[in-house]
Design a protein around this nucleic acid. Structure first.
Lengths: 223, 223
DNA sequence: CACCATTATAACTGGGTGATAAAATAATGT
DNA sequence: ACATTATTTTATCACCCAGTTATAATGGTG
């Protein structure tokens, strides 16, 4: 498993490969060539081969790629073969939406706890997870070996909570708050700015005429 | 307003410029140079200048950029100075989270209706918006001049609903379902695949050692 | 009139695509 | 059943283009 410089562009595409391979497995497909996959995913076969080659030869000439093997290998690369403990901070609709999305647990993301400042929410149980007071946040993170925190709170509170998480030793923040976070460089921040996504959509709607494309197409880009 | 070929990379950055300019306005800042903005946003001044130049000279030599002017110009480019009617399909937590996010309305995104198949939810009112049966979807889209549909439903139902939206004349789909959608090329699809975002985060956590960075940094990339 | 900051231009870097070579499988004939 | 040929498909290389960063030229500011 050569640990040398995989480009961000490649990593960004891996989850989509993973999803399609999962669907192929469900359909009982055992092997697939880069060409078939290319047709299905609407990307060039060249790119598929080059992407996968970054991690060493998963394919075999004259045969193609073994679906199941490739699926588990990508899981390893993405680190979703291990368990990640996470907490959700902000038990509003968005926080609960994440808590309710069962599939995360299948991918090894285990929701250990939820937190909020609203006294009305504290004590409630969502999917078997009790909503706690943010006062207990740091101790909980330490006690439960929590690596990832999903931040689904207003932007005004986000920087302070982020600082507290960092001090408690968090490894990564999944940031849904509409603000940039400043953290030490050994802490990962993955932003999900929905309003920015909607603005990009708005631009594309307003500038439809000059949209590069080729009649019926599948959606590939962006998160 | 030169309508010639703005790259996707530039458009993807505009919302972030917009957000920072909004904050500067709130702080009463009237003008700013590319260098100051570069420090604040942690991107190169070169990039800021080149990005903004795509749309014609917003700045002035020896002075910098007028914050308010730039703010409104970016709004025009993104099309968020106009009103967009939208519907939310899927009134679960995620759908409600979007409905409850008030700021969208400030940006001209007006939620006209919500839809679900669950009879228990139909008839309920969220933020003054009644949840309707998806049976009435097409007619509602036509009657209310709806341009954008947010799809917060399971992936199994998504393709069918997308087809129906397309036939009803929708302009854009904001897709939260974990699947690719196939649509005619005059329909915009903006994907928000949360599970893929979380997998990218997972990769970065597991490969922390070789993370390009420069001690305390702000988060810039990705949606 | 010196300074400052933009604009315009140029150099560079890296991702994406297509082409070629190598390797393994499948098919064919003896 | 085995050897040989044809086909398939990956792996690798080279090129092109877009995006990013750096530099030179221009024009206001104070």
């Amino acid at each position: 498993m050569a640990d040398k410089e995989i480009s961000k562009a490649v990593i960004a595409r891996l989850p989509r490969y993973y999803r399609h391979l999962g669907e192929l497995m469900e359909d009982g497909v055992e092997r697939i060539s880069s060409n078939e996959l290319s047709l299905r995913m609407k990307v060039t076969a060249s790119q598929i081969r080059q992407d996968l080659n970054n991690f060493g030869g998963f394919g075999q000439q004259g045969y193609g790629y073994n679906v199941k093997y490739l699926y588990t290998e990508i899981a390893k690369i993405l680190g979703i073969d291990r368990q990640h403990n996470l907490v959700i901070i902000g038990a509003g609709n968005l926080g609960q939406a994440i808590a309710n999305y069962a599939n995360f647990e299948k991918r090894g993301f285990l929701i250990k706890g939820m937190f909020d400042i609203n006294p009305r929410l504290i004590g409630l149980v969502v999917r078997g997870i009790e909503i706690r007071s943010v006062d207990d946040l740091e101790q909980f993170v330490i006690d439960n070996n929590v690596q990832i925190a999903a931040l689904t709170i207003p932007k005004t509170k986000a920087p302070e909570i982020a600082d507290r998480l960092v001090r408690a030793g968090i490894k990564a923040i999944w940031n849904f708050a509409h603000t940039d976070l400043t953290v030490p460089d050994d802490v990962v921040v993955e932003n999900v700015h929905l309003s920015e996504s909607l603005m990009r959509l708005s631009y594309r709607v307003c500038n439809m005429q000059d949209q590069e494309s080729d009649k019926y197409r599948q959606t590939a880009k962006n998160s």
